[in-house]
Write a protein that binds this DNA or RNA. Structure first.
Lengths: 200, 200
DNA sequence: TAGGAGCAGTTAACACTGTTAACCTAATTA
DNA sequence: TAATTAGGTTAACAGTGTTAACTGCTCCTA
């Protein structure tokens, strides 16, 4: 078919991600994926235990990419404030530039996640722990004002996800520019955790 | 069967909500609902156009209850700060005390929502607008420090939802007490929007 | 060079899903 | 009494995830 033969496993993942993003979770079926890959549905089971595992693999892939994306931006920054901002910007930038990958992470509901191996969560935690450490650093440098870094980190992820969701789901007031909305919101999130002294 | 004959429509809604909460979205089927109601699957179609509409009704019901719950606590408060706290506490209390109703609101994914009539969103907006107004009030009273109330309100919902989700999905570190976590987080959310002068 | 192992895919089938069309029956109304 | 309607049923259709059993085909070894 194509010039370069893509291994079927990767082809299935690509097709699944596209279908998931375009038609949503409900419309995703093994047979539809197979049809797009010019293959029988049963062939998918040669590479994935079942539909859930296929989705988990997709999630895991995206989480890994998001983690790398954030770390690439954050780790070079040595100042706690700069690193803090880099983490947040990294998260939002990833969501804006790769919506189909970002959405996958949150698209599949926890009920399908029931069998999701606990250990896999660790990967998602890598960035979370980086954020916690950065906040702790910020506190000792006197630039951040937070009581409980662990709680604050949770709140920040939730806040960012909320901002991104509003834009992705097009729930924004039509008069509001989405670029501007994101920029303002992110700025607000950041400022909410700084000491008064360090506000620019 | 039962002493008091519950109308079938209500019975279907109750059974659906329970099944949805206990077994998740994926496991919810028309036939299973019908079986629990001692009725045929097709009977459900006498009261609901299809499965999506049944779920939409469930969501709408919960959104309405949440709105009433919040308004009951917030409207009596006339001071902007007290009302601000009442809205936030109301939201979290509802989520903690009626998890099966709260979860329904976020359980069904936007792809099933595609056909969800735009007008229905207004109801969800009632409390959102109350929050915006309260923030604006707080600003003019000099107790709140927010640039864009509209954006801030979005952020607050997202933040609260994130906090609640972590607890509901039992993703919390086993050493962390969930009651304490909620209390600390909420406090942190609130403090993030106050002027330094008004911090207790 | 023959034969077996194993890879990569297939076909056929099972039990289950949402949904529709056609039908029945008992109560209410004209 | 006759007609209509409300509230349910049965049977069927197309589509779903998943399994067991099969087919070619390539490669390694005796």
């Amino acid at each position: 078919m194509s010039e370069v033969e893509i291994p079927l496993r990767d082809k299935i993942l690509d097709i699944s991600r596209d279908l998931l993003f375009e038609e949503g979770y409900k419309a995703l079926s093994m047979r539809k994926i197979a049809r797009k890959a010019n293959v029988t549905a049963t062939s998918i089971y040669l590479y994935f235990e079942n539909k859930d595992h296929l989705l988990h693999t997709l999630i895991e892939e995206s989480v890994e990419e998001l983690s790398v994306f954030i770390e690439e931006r954050a780790l070079p920054q040595k100042e706690p404030l700069a690193r803090f901002e880099a983490i947040i910007d990294g998260y939002v930038d990833f969501a804006v530039h790769f919506p189909e990958k970002y959405e996958v992470i949150y698209m599949v509901r926890p009920d399908a996640m029931a069998r999701y191996p606990k250990e896999k969560f660790r990967k998602a935690r890598r960035c979370y722990e980086l954020l916690v450490e950065t906040i702790q650093d910020g506190i000792s440098h006197g630039v951040m004002d937070v009581d409980k870094p662990v709680t604050a980190a949770y709140s920040i992820w939730a806040q960012l996800h909320g901002i991104v969701s509003v834009v992705h789901n097009k729930r924004l007031d039509s008069r509001v520019d989405s670029e501007q909305f994101i920029q303002d919101s992110v700025e607000h999130v950041i400022q909410g955790f700084l000491t008064r002294a360090s506000v620019t």
